[in-house]
Computed example of a mutant assay.
Amino acid sequence: MDDDYRIVEGPPPLDDYLRLRRDSGLTPVRPDQGAGAISGSWSACHVVAADGAPVAMGRVLGDGGWYFHIADIATDPAHQRRGLGRRVLEWLIADIRTRAPEGAYVSLIGDPPGQRLYRSLGLDDVAPSLGMAAVLR
């Protein structure tokens, strides 16, 4: 990450959270869902460009005891391929290491574009387990 960017502790403002999810290819969410996600985070950070605009983000869901789930790693397409996602993930993992008890379990759902990055930072496949999900309607 070069000097044109700086990492900020905490989530981006709601409008930027929604924009970064949408523009980076994550599933868009409604404002009420985004507000709940932001307020329910155990930890979060975002990256701002030289003009102050949020351009990358990530957050952690956690119980404070042993389970921590990394979510919403997203980078604005105009700022991708500059190491911003790596810096966000490194910051989040460092925060978990600093504040969580020894033996914390860290997980994430790794979509194909991010899998190489996640593995390079020590996250492994959970095989033979399989991630599962449901969208409630």
Score class of each variant (00 low, 15 high):
Tyr67Gln: 12
Arg21Phe: 07
Glu9Gly: 04
Tyr105Lys: 12
Ala35Ile: 00
Ser107His: 00
Ser41Leu: 09
Thr75Glu: 10
Pro28His: 11
Arg19Ile: 01
Arg6Ser: 13
Arg119Gly: 14
Leu14Trp: 02
Ile73Arg: 05
Asp51Gln: 01
Cys45Tyr: 04
Asp51Val: 05
Pro13Asp: 13
Ile38Asn: 09
Leu20Cys: 10
Arg97Pro: 00
Gly83Cys: 09
Asp32His: 14
Arg116Trp: 04
Ile96Ser: 02
Arg86Gly: 07
Tyr67His: 15
Glu102Met: 11
Gly36Leu: 08
Glu9Phe: 00
Ala35Met: 10
Tyr17Ala: 02
Gly36Met: 10
Ala127Ser: 14
Gln80Gly: 06
Ala37Ile: 12
Met57Lys: 05
Ala104Gly: 11
Leu84Gln: 03
Glu90Pro: 01
Leu20Pro: 00
Leu20Ala: 09
Ala71Lys: 06
Asp16Gln: 08
Asp15Met: 04
Asp76Arg: 07
Pro28Leu: 08
Val55His: 02
Ile38Ser: 02
Gly122Ser: 05
Pro54Met: 10
Ile70Val: 15
Ala37Phe: 03
Arg30Ala: 15
Gly62Tyr: 05
Asp16Lys: 09
Arg30Lys: 11
Val55Met: 06
Thr27Gln: 13
Arg119Met: 05
Val88Phe: 02
Arg116Gln: 14
Glu102Trp: 03
Leu61Asn: 04
Gly65Lys: 01
Ile70Asn: 00
Val88Ala: 02
Ser120His: 09
Gly34His: 10
Thr27Met: 12
Gln115Gly: 04
Ile96Cys: 06
Gly34Ile: 09
Val29Ile: 15
Ser107Glu: 12
Arg116His: 09
Thr98Ser: 11
Leu26Ala: 15
Gly114Pro: 06
Ala53Cys: 05
Asp72Thr: 07
Gln33Ile: 15
Ser41Lys: 07
Trp66Ala: 12
Gln33Asn: 00
Gly58Ile: 07
Pro54Trp: 03
Pro12Thr: 13
Pro11Leu: 13
Gly64Val: 03
Asp16His: 15
Tyr105Val: 14
Gln33Gly: 11
Gly58Thr: 06
Leu89Arg: 04
Ile38Gly: 01
Asp16Gly: 08
His79Leu: 04
Val47Thr: 04
Asp124Cys: 10
Arg116Thr: 14
Leu123Met: 14
Leu123Phe: 13
Ser41Gly: 12
Leu89Met: 15
Glu90Asn: 00
Leu117Asp: 09
Val88Pro: 01
Pro28Arg: 04
Gly25Met: 11
Arg119Thr: 11
His46Gln: 05
Ser39Thr: 14
Gly103Tyr: 02
Pro113Gln: 12
Pro54Tyr: 03
Gly65His: 10
Ala100Ile: 07
Gly65Trp: 08
Ala44Asp: 09
Glu90His: 02
Gly114Val: 15
Asp125Val: 13
Asp125Asn: 09
Ile96Lys: 03
Ala74Phe: 07
Ile70Met: 01
Arg6Ala: 07
Pro77His: 07
Leu14Gln: 12
Leu14Thr: 14
Ala74His: 08
Arg59Trp: 04
Arg82Met: 07
Arg99Thr: 15
Asp63Gln: 04
